[in-house]
Simulated scan of single mutants.
Amino acid sequence: MAEDLPARRLLLVHAHPDDETIATGAIMAKYAAEGARVTLVTCTLGEEGEVLVPELEHLASDRDDQLGPHRITERDAAMKALGITDARWLGGAGTYRDSGMVWSETGAATVAPDVPANAFWLADLREAADHLVAVIREVRPQVLVTYDDFGNYGHPDHVQAHRVATYAVALAAVPSYREDLGEPWDVAKVYWTAQSESWLREGLRRLREAGDHTTFEGMDPDGDLSFMAVPDDKIAAVIKADEYAEAKLEAMRAYPTQIKVDSPFFALSNNLGAYVWGTEFFRIAKGTAVPTDDGFEHDLFAGTR
């Protein structure tokens, strides 16, 4: 029943396990700790991911093909670290498979030539959106967070997650659409995850000064970062959640097959602490931003009821 729902409700739509922690782990922990209902929908199990742990390499898709089930356990551990109790799989676990990707000549990710038959990239858009419509109408979030139309860096599953989320938000608000999926609900605000250009440049400088010259090799703190970053004047919300940086780091450690926690970057970024992991940035795609004196929102729920 709607009257039984918490006052603030946040829904996040991500492509693979670990995406949610890297991009939005701090806000997830922050809002959950503050009493909001935080719901995560992950679209695939991440079956095509690279396995960074040698003793688990047999799980890879070109060997035992058991990485997906393993990443379920990793996500469970990450959600525990973030304090999230409502984490779901779009359509149920394994409904859509990780599409994989390749790097294009432009440096962006793109669709691989051998996409699996049940890949999320090939999913029927309305079918996939309907799964999310049901969640939207159940959870009734004021705020939904997902990727931009480029999937932030071109990964086909990120792009598809953007498309599914965008379509589902529109359909969920239509009173006459699929009444069997619940009462209509209009999401007040939709945000796209982003990487601040000024923040990325400063982060790169700090890494270089700390002695790491190999992570993000070729990325010049003073050069062209348009592929990875968003100009600050395009960013609507800056959420500082420094007190939840350690929870985010703990959640990242829950993904050893995907995140090399003993790498120079992880060690150095861990030492940089809240600067690297405690602040997250967003573009607004639906609704009206409510900026403060510095020109940015500092609460995704600002202006909602």
Rank of each mutant, 00 (worst) to 15 (best):
S198R: 05
A112C: 03
L11A: 10
D4C: 12
E209F: 00
H158D: 12
A194C: 01
Q195K: 05
R137F: 12
A254W: 00
D4R: 14
L300K: 13
K286I: 13
D220N: 15
T215H: 11
M101C: 06
R37K: 14
A302Q: 10
Y275G: 05
F281N: 12
F227I: 09
Q142R: 14
G35H: 09
A236P: 00
E74T: 07
P54K: 05
D222F: 01
G46N: 08
A210Q: 08
D98L: 05
W199P: 03
C43R: 00
K240S: 13
H70Q: 06
L207V: 06
P141V: 13
E243A: 15
D242I: 04
P156S: 05
R9D: 13
N152I: 14
Q258R: 07
A254Y: 02
R201A: 08
Q258M: 05
A229L: 08
K248F: 07
L207E: 07
Y147P: 08
D62Y: 09
H58K: 07
N152D: 11
E197P: 01
E202A: 13
A237W: 01
Q66N: 07
H162N: 12
R63M: 08
P264C: 13
E246V: 15
N271F: 01
A241F: 04
Y244I: 02
D224G: 09
A77S: 13
P184S: 11
K80S: 04
T166R: 13
V164H: 06
D299H: 10
S263E: 07
G211A: 13
L144F: 07
S198D: 08
L82M: 03
G25T: 12
H155I: 05
V135P: 02
V135H: 05
K240T: 15
F281C: 14
W89F: 11
V159Y: 02
R88I: 02
F227K: 14
H155E: 07
T44A: 03
D148W: 01
R253P: 09
D233T: 06
S176F: 10
E50G: 02
T193D: 04
E47W: 00
L5R: 15
W277K: 10
A23W: 14
